Simulated scan of single mutants.
Amino acid sequence: MQRRCDFAQPDSLKRSAIVFSPHQDDETLGCGGTILKKTQAGAPIKIVFMTDGSQSHSHVMSAKDLRKIRSNEALAAAEKLGVASKDVMFLNITDGTLTHHKNMVIKKVKEILLTTLPEEVFVPYRQDGVPDHNATCHIVVSALKECGLRTTVYEYPVWFWCNWPWTNFAAQQKQESSTLGHHWNTGLNWLKYFRHAVDIQDVLDLKRIALEQHRSQMTRLIPDSGWSTLGDIAQGEFLQCFFQDYEFFYRYRLN
């Protein structure tokens, strides 16, 4: 299957946008470079965090402490991305429970959309593989349809990268053939859907600085081997996926 990409043009980088992030770090991982390019171009950008991030390391730190730490990290990262604190919103749904609150969150998202009327909306890929991520996409797209807004949606991959051929293929080869079939199909989805690309080569260093603000995800805040980091996943291969020359999106128009 031949892969063809269309690349973001300068005019598109000036369009207003809202980035919906399931957790505090997904905004930087999935589209941090694009946010930087847009804020540098003068585009109005808002970031909405769907959950409170309180469960990422709840086995070694209290949910209350994590919630505070991750919200502060999110604001620090947003600042590095060029987004002011007044343009950052927290819905504070308990981490891991977004699927149980869809109707209520759809209502909240509709209010945000109708107040801001963004030209573009960024959400995680619909089959990203983590419940909060998949739910974020479903909730936001449902809200957009109910509002009847004409906008362009960009779905960004995060946990999708934890599939063949990008990470840990040797370990996956040892799995059942049916599972390998799933990873092969995931690779085909990449060819089919992710055909829009934003060149972020000139802002890669700034994206790294923004991600470093999410210290709870990048470093061990306490000396406990149970505190996992993004760099631990797939022996670092997962994190490398976010520092390619381009960020890729599944782009489509609603209404």
Results as ranks from 00 to 15, higher is better:
R3H: 14
R4F: 13
D6I: 13
Q9W: 01
Q9A: 11
D11I: 11
S16P: 04
H23S: 07
G42W: 05
D52Q: 03
S58A: 15
M61T: 10
M61I: 11
S62M: 03
S62V: 04
K68I: 14
K68A: 13
N72C: 13
L75Y: 01
A77Q: 01
E79R: 07
L81Q: 00
G82N: 04
K86D: 15
V88E: 00
I93E: 08
I93P: 02
T97K: 12
T97E: 10
T99Y: 09
H101K: 14
H101G: 05
N103F: 05
N103K: 13
I106Q: 04
I112K: 08
V121N: 05
R126Q: 13
G129F: 03
G129W: 04
P131M: 11
N134Q: 09
I139D: 02
S142D: 13
E146G: 01
L149K: 03
T151W: 05
V153G: 07
Y154K: 05
E155G: 09
E155T: 09
C162M: 14
N168H: 14
A171V: 10
G181N: 12
H182M: 10
L188C: 10
N189L: 14
L191S: 11
L191K: 11
K192A: 13
Y193R: 12
R195Y: 04
V198G: 06
I200C: 03
V203F: 06
R208H: 12
I209P: 01
I209M: 12
E212L: 11
E212M: 12
D224G: 08
S225L: 11
W227D: 09
T229G: 07
L230H: 05
I233D: 01
A234D: 14
A234R: 06
G236E: 02
Q240M: 08
C241N: 10
Q244V: 06
Y246S: 09
Y252R: 10
